[in-house]
Structure formats: C-alpha cells, structure tokens
Design a protein around this nucleic acid. Structure first.
Length: 842
RNA sequence: GGGCUCAUAGUCUAGUGGCUAUGACGUCUCCCUUACACGGAGGAGGUCACCGGUUCGAAUCCGGUUGGGCCCACCA
C-alpha cells in the first residue's frame, strides 16, 4: 500500500467527523443487550462560542465516555443546550434588535426558539470539532416544550406535596435589571463609601450615636441594637448634651468630640430604652441586644432597617416580634416616607442633606468596604420584599449531607465544598424570577386570591395565554413570573432520560452513572440537581461525579474578556488540531486547574506526527503479516509484551478512577520511549533481513509489533480519537472489521504475558544500547556507524540471559562482534540499572 | 474570618515513607540513519517555598510560617 507522506490533521478531522455522523458511530442503541453507561452531559449556553474552559472540561469527560464505550458499555451520552437564561435573552435581543420586555412573552420565546434553531448548528459544531462522542440526536434545549413540561411538572409535584410556597420575603434584587437574583449572581466589589455618625434622641433625654453606610434607609428603621455584655458610657459634651456610645468609641472619639464620662455601665442597662429615629415611619424604636454588635466598630450601636442588607434580614429573623417596614418596590424606588418616589442613590443624597441641616449628622468618615453588586451590571443590589416562590428545603440539610456522602466524588476532596455549602445554607430556594424569558410558573390566582394550578396532562402551559380546564380567562389572573433557570437545569438527568420515556430502556437511564462538571458550580448545578432528585425520588441523580478544573491563562490567571487573555479553542484547533487540544486537556489531573501553554499544544501535535510516522513503519512492515502466532517469541518481543501488559493494567485502573491524565502520561511514555526509541529500532534488523535472521524471527517481531502498536492505538483512542481512527482505517481495521476504532474492545490485561526474565533481558539490552549511543554521540559519529567490538563484562547468569538476545543487540548497536569478558578496565561504562560493564572498540 | 487546595530546574508538570527526584518545552553539543530533520542521540540545569517534629530514612506523614488559587461568611 502506498501511504501518504504526511498526515493532514484538518482534512482528516473533518473527514472523520462526517464519517462518524454518517455511520452513526456514537448513536445510542436503546435495544442494546450491553450494560448502559449514562452521562449527564452539562448543557452549554448558546450565548456565543465554545470557550477554552469548555474545550478543557468537555474533553476530559469525553475521554471517560470513550473509554467506557471501548470497555464494553452502551453509552447514553446526550447533548443539550441551556437556552433558558439571561444570557440567551440578551443574545437574542442583540441579534434580532428587539426588547423582550416590550414583547409578548410567548412571542419572544417563539422568536428565541426560532433564532436558536438558526444559530445552534454552528455552535454545536464547535463541540463536534472537538471530537465529542455524544449522540447529538439525544438532544434537549432547556427552553423547548419538552423541557418546559418537565420543569413545570416538577413545580407542580412539589407544589402539590407542599414543598413549594409563596411568600412576601426579602430577596436579593437588582434595581437595574429589575429581577430577583441568586446569591451566586452577586459579586463583591470594593467601593469608596462613607460611614455616617448620626445621633438619635432617647426618650430619657440622652443621645444615642450610631453609624451607618446606608443612611437612606432611615424611614425603614425598625430597631436599634447594642451588645448587652459590652462596656458603654454616657458622656457629657461641652454643650451639655449627653451622648451614649461604647467605651471603645469614647476612646477613639474623645479628641474630635471633647466629652467627659459621667457614667459607665454594661450594655444591659440600655435595653428597652425608646429612641426617636429621624424620619422613621416608626416614631420610637426600642434598644435591644443583638449578637452581631461589636463595641469596637463605629459607636457600638447599630440601627436596623428593612432592609439594608443581609445583616438586617438576619437581624429581623432573630427579633421575630419586630414587624419589617417595606419601603421599596420592585422597581428599586421608595414607596413610602419622606423620600417616596426616589431611587436609593438619590434618597441617600437627600437624607444626608436633611440630617446635616437638622443637626443629626455629626461626622462623616470615609472608608472602603465591599458591597455586593450584580455581576452582570455591577449595580449595587438591594433587598426588597416581594412575593416570591420558594422550595422549602432548609430542614433537609441532613438528608442532603447524607446524599452527598453516598456520591462517589472524583477527586474526593471536592465533597468538602458541597458539605460546606449545605451546612451554610440559610435560605430556602427562591425559584421565581421577574424575567420575561423563561419557563412560566404554571399558576393563576382566582378572584379571592386563591392559587390555581393545572393538571399534569395540561403541561406545558403558558398562563398568560391559557387557563386550566374548567376556567375561563376572566376568572383567573395569571402569575407573571418565570422559573429561575436553575429550577430547570437541575433536571438535566430527567430532561435527557425522558426522551426515551416510551421505550423499555427508560428505567435503565435514571439515575445516571456520571455527572461531569467543573468545580465552580458544585454549589448550584450539582447541589440543585441533587436536591430535585432527592425531593422527587429520594435518590441521588448519579453514582459518580467527576469534577474538572479550569483552564487558566499562561500565567495561571483566570481568563476573562476584560483582561484580554482569552484563548479561543477554535483558533487552537485550527493551528494544532483537535487531537492536540485534547492531548493538552489530558495533561491536567482531574480537578486541577491547568495554565494554557502553547508549547503543550506543540507537544500534542508532535504526538500526532509521531503516531503517524511510527504507523508508517509499522504498517509497511506488517503488509505481509497474516496474523499468525510465532513459533517462539524472542526475548525482546516477550520483553515489550510484558511491559505492554503492565501498561494495560495500570491504564485501565487509572481510567476506572477517571484518572485519564495518568493513562495519557503512561501511554505516551511507553509509546515514545519503549516502543519507538527502543523496540522499533531493535526489530528493524529482523524485519529487513529475514534471510539472515530467519523468517521465524521476523514473524515474532511482526506479531509483537502488531499487538503492541495496535494496543497503544486503542489506549490512546479516547484521548486522540482522530489520528487513531485514521491509522486504524489504514491497516488495523483488517483484523477486526469494525467500522471504527471507537467500537474496538479496550485492551485486556493478559497475565500470561508478564515475563520477568524477558523484562530483565530487555532492560539490560536497553541500558547497553544507551551506552553505545552515548559513545557514538560523544565521539561525534553517526548512530548507523559500525563499531568493531562490543565487550560485555557480566556475571555468568546475566551472560546467559544476554546471549538470548545477542543478535538483536548486535543489530541495533551495529557491532561487528560482541564478546563476553569478565575483565574490565577504566574505559568500561557501567549500566544504569544492572551490574553490567560495557567496553567499546571503534 | 472559616473551609478546601496548591507551592518540585527558566516554564509547565509526575511523584501519598526507600537506590542517583519524572516527563515535556526551552537551552547546549552532535548526527541528514531506508517511520519521522515537523526528526534522532547525548549533555547541562533542582536547598522539592520556609521553620520545626515523627522516623533508621521525608518532596511524600504531622505542626507551624509565608505566598497563590477557589468557595463561603462578614464588613452597621
């Protein structure tokens, strides 16, 4: 056969993509008799292009998928897209130049679905080019009717079982985006702020001094707290005003505000005092104790509002008798009090002006502090009390921790993050969003305000357009809110499995075997999915979770568009091939982050080239080999087969633990060093000269070459699916007749081929060859140059062993003569690992 | 502040108690050899972050320090 000189990775990769698709190589067969291995593939968001982090973690999960397929499983490996979120909404608005808020919701969803149909193929093609072996026909979009039905069904079931409730409750709210946001959508930003010291007159005549960064909330002040065990003082100012502050505050303030202590006491003494707060809707608030108050901060006296922040919310939950004051609505505007109709930033300016004019403000202290902002728009978040839908789960922490214990975590330590998160949960799960685009909450309200839900067989349903059977549009007011995107994406195992709902295979698809994902979303995607399956079925959604790390920039920093250090995987594939990109992704241990280093891609490309070139040698020399077993296996052949079987054993064990990087590393080393550098060089002599060494010696080499090369190809196939497929089709397909190497059986460990004596012979030979190479290198002569005599000073036992491989050693070292001699002198070199000394005569 | 995690040649990385610490890239020297010059052979390059402990023996185990990363909490 005429073999092409070079391997053109781009042509080849496109060729095999088409081939795999046309031949349904990765098609799931629901009627299979094989055991099924199910993967809960993460659905990426069609909000742009695949990024390098995707390429990194999806490659890693694909290694496992391909390994499992070769290990004999039928793969249920779906591919969905998460189209149900703000990101998609923004993308569609941009692409179609529309404003979702100005459109009918149903219409906008339809436009999204239509637009997604247009752009999705290109988007998904990036994943195909990466060599993902999903069955792309097992597809769902988290906004399609199928997903909407399942998501609404989940809502309905949980509602009917009393798990879901609606409550006026403070939620984290973005006044700019005008929606409730999740904890995870916030980020910390350090901002310049002012700590304002303000005085308030107590009923008994003294002034309490407190400090706040949120003065605009004065109208909503509902209480004032101190530390009952802390030290406080009453101090007299020059103008005879009496100030109550903590002793710590007295010490720091006395220079700026000269005063004289007239009384010292514990905070306990202040409890129950009534205080008049400026502009508050409550005339008087009462002093009480709260655990969060520290005497050394500010003045040791804190005012609480509904709601200045999480601390106020928590404070209210500790002081249950105090009624919150709701003064802000969902548009971020004050609805009551002196600053009605102002947004909070304007209100702050006005309040400060008034406080100053009315003599309440005594000090402004510049400070830097962290405020929570919405990550998308960087707007300060607010806490607003609105009607929201919640899934009640706080009392189930123990059950969730228990469920986490039952999962197999790879790597194990990632479970800590999950445990930490569950233990720290303080809120029920808020699942409603005031967005326009999303899965509608299937709820209506009748004229008395009662909640009306549909029957399961009416789903999916759009409440803005339809009503449940037996009602008319006039009877009911629809719920306008939609479900949070996580309420739907927490159902991915069901979204995928339900596509086979009417097939007997259905019951084998859930729970799934594996959830692969990155470590940043353990606390929400992983946790939320587990919550849903626990609530619905009291089981875990999967057996194993495999947690990937992140791709970082070359300096180990996180990639981000704003830093301009983003690497585009499409460009990488163009320059180095998908196999090379995957080879790079295989270089990181599971769960570890990996800096992107261009040189690693060059290494991957080198691996492709080497496989190609070595296969040319192998295939050319296997042309006349008919698969016969050799009469006698030569020691060098037994040597590499023994090494190969050790490799198969450890590679398999590594893959079973999802440690693909170990497999990659071992196979790479075996291939380059053992197979190419040494074995191939050794057997050339036998392959080229059967007239000298005999046909049996050639057949022994051919059998061994075929076995070891083919095995390496299979071991490498999960990581580099393209080049291995190319080589398979050039030759090795003949022995199996399968349509793809990816249908081949993963190499099996054969204990009979483990041969300690042969390993010793081979290892000694390699050491001797290495000494000869070094000799030639230092003497600046070509490796093909002949040497006249090779003298081996060894003990009797090793001499016997070495004599068994003497022809091979002679051939590869190009020694005209090899003699054994027990005498050695200073010119001899000792082998690295054996008590063998080597002398060379040019 | 709490939890987790990491620290190994110029760079990235392997290595969970044992001969001389792994590999790649880079670097230097040599070699155009019938798979490969998109290559091959060989060399140089390391206080395994720091301090202390356990041990016959520590990159590895324990305690502490320093510095990175991630997650969580706090910031009136």
């Amino acid at each position: 056969m005429e073999l092409p000189l070079n391997y053109s990775e781009h042509e080849a990769e496109i060729k095999w993509l088409k081939y795999w698709e046309e031949n349904n190589v990765y098609k799931f067969n629901p009627d299979t008799k094989k055991e099924i291995y199910t993967i809960d593939t993460p659905p990426p968001t069609v909000s742009g292009k695949m990024h390098i982090g995707h390429a990194f973690s999806f490659s890693q999960q694909d290694f496992v998928a391909r390994y499992k397929r070769m290990a004999g499983f039928e793969l249920f490996y779906p591919f969905g897209t998460d189209d149900n979120g703000l990101a998609t909404e923004r993308l569609i608005e941009k692409l179609k130049n529309v404003k979702s808020k100005k459109m009918d919701r149903d219409e906008f969803v339809k436009l999204c679905l239509k637009t997604l149909e247009e752009i999705r193929p290109d988007f998904i093609f990036d994943w195909k080019k990466l060599g993902m072996s999903c069955d792309f026909d097992i597809f769902y979009s988290t906004i399609d009717a199928h997903s909407q039905r399942i998501s609404q069904e989940s809502f309905l079931k949980l509602y009917n079982s009393g798990r879901i409730y609606r409550k006026k409750s403070p939620i984290i709210f973005c006044p700019h985006c005008k929606t409730a946001i999740a904890q995870v959508e916030m980020e910390d930003v350090e901002k310049q702020s002012t700590l304002n010291y303000i005085k308030a007159k107590a009923e008994s005549g003294e002034y309490l001094i407190y400090s706040t960064t949120r003065p605009e909330l004065h109208p909503a002040c509902v209480g004032i707290s101190i530390d009952e065990n802390g030290d406080y003082v009453t101090a007299k100012r020059e103008n005879n005003e009496l100030w109550i502050i903590s002793k710590d505050a007295y010490n720091t303030m006395k220079e700026e505000f000269p005063m004289e202590i007239i009384n010292e006491y514990k905070g306990k003494e202040l409890l129950g005092k009534k205080v008049e707060i400026a502009y508050s809707l409550r005339n008087f608030v009462e002093i009480n104790h709260d655990i969060s108050v520290k005497t050394e901060y500010g003045t040791g006296i804190v005012y609480y509002c509904s709601y200045g922040g999480l601390d106020c919310v928590e404070w209210l939950s500790r002081h249950k008798t105090i009624e919150p004051l709701h003064i802000m609505d969902e548009s971020g505007v004050y609805t009551k009090g002196k600053y009605k109709d102002l947004p909070s930033d304007k209100a702050r300016e006005e309040v400060l002006k008034d406080l100053e004019a009315d003599g309440y403000l005594i000090k402004k202290q510049k400070m830097k502090h962290f405020v929570n902002v919405h990550e998308r728009c960087q707007t300060d978040i607010e806490y607003v009390a609105t009607e929201q839908w919640f899934i009640k789960y706080l009392e189930l922490k123990e059950q969730f921790l228990e469920a986490g214990n039952k999962l197999n975590w790879y790597p194990n330590h990632m479970k800590n993050r999950y445990d930490n998160w569950v233990k720290g949960l303080q809120w029920d799960w808020c699942i409603s969003r005031q967005r326009h685009f999303g899965v509608p909450i299937p709820v209506w309200y009748d004229k008395h305000g009662n909640i009306v839900v549909p029957k399961a067989d009416e789903l999916p349903i759009e409440p803005l357009k339809n009503v449940p059977k037996g009602y008319s549009m006039n009877d009911l007011t629809p719920e306008k809110d939609v479900l949070d995107t996580w309420a739907t994406s927490s159902l991915t195992p069901t979204l995928a499995a339900d596509l086979f709902k009417n097939h007997p295979v259905y019951k084998k698809l859930y729970p799934m075997n594996l959830r692969p994902q990155a470590h940043d979303i353990i606390t929400f995607w992983l946790f939320n999915t587990l919550v849903k399956s626990q609530l619905h079925d009291k089981i875990n959604p999967w057996k194993d979770v495999m947690i990937s790390g992140w791709a970082l920039d070359p300096h180990g920093k996180k990639m981000s568009k704003s830093k301009g250090n983003v690497i585009e995987p499409q460009e990488v594939i163009k320059k180095y091939s998908a196999d090379a990109l995957r080879f790079w992704a295989a270089g990181s241990k599971l769960g570890e982050d990996l800096p992107y280093q261009e040189k690693d891609l060059a290494t991957g490309k080198k691996m492709v080239t080497k496989l190609w070139n070595a296969s040319k040698l192998a295939i050319t020399n296997l042309e006349d080999y008919k698969g016969q077993k050799p009469k006698h296996l030569l020691p060098i052949d037994a040597w590499i087969l023994s090494k190969l079987n050790n490799l198969i054993k450890s590679s398999t064990e590594s893959f079973e633990k999802y440690e693909y990087s170990k497999t990659k590393q071992e196979v790479e080393k075996f291939f380059f060093s053992t197979l190419c550098d040494n074995y191939l060089e050794i057997i050339k002599e036998r392959l080229y000269n059967p007239d000298i060494h005999g046909v049996d010696a050639k057949v022994s080499a051919q059998y061994t070459l075929h076995t070891s090369f083919f095995s390496v190809l299979k071991l490498m196939a999960p990581i580099m699916p393209f080049i291995t497929e190319e080589i398979y089709h050039l030759h090795f397909i003949k022995t199996e007749g399968l349509k793809s190497i990816h249908h081949s059986e993963w190499p099996k460990f054969n204990a009979e081929l483990i041969n300690e004596e042969a390993e010793k012979i081979g290892d000694m030979a390699v050491d001797i060859i290495s000494i000869v190479r070094k000799f030639k290198s230092t003497n600046k002569i070509s490796l093909k140059e002949e040497i006249s005599t090779l003298i081996l000073a060894v003990n009797e036992e090793d001499e016997k062993l070495l004599k068994k491989a003497i022809a091979d050693i002679k051939g590869v070292t190009r020694a005209k003569e090899i003699i054994f001699d027990d005498k050695d002198d200073d010119s001899f070199t000792r082998c690295e690992n054996f008590d063998v000394k080597v002398g060379i005569i040019k």
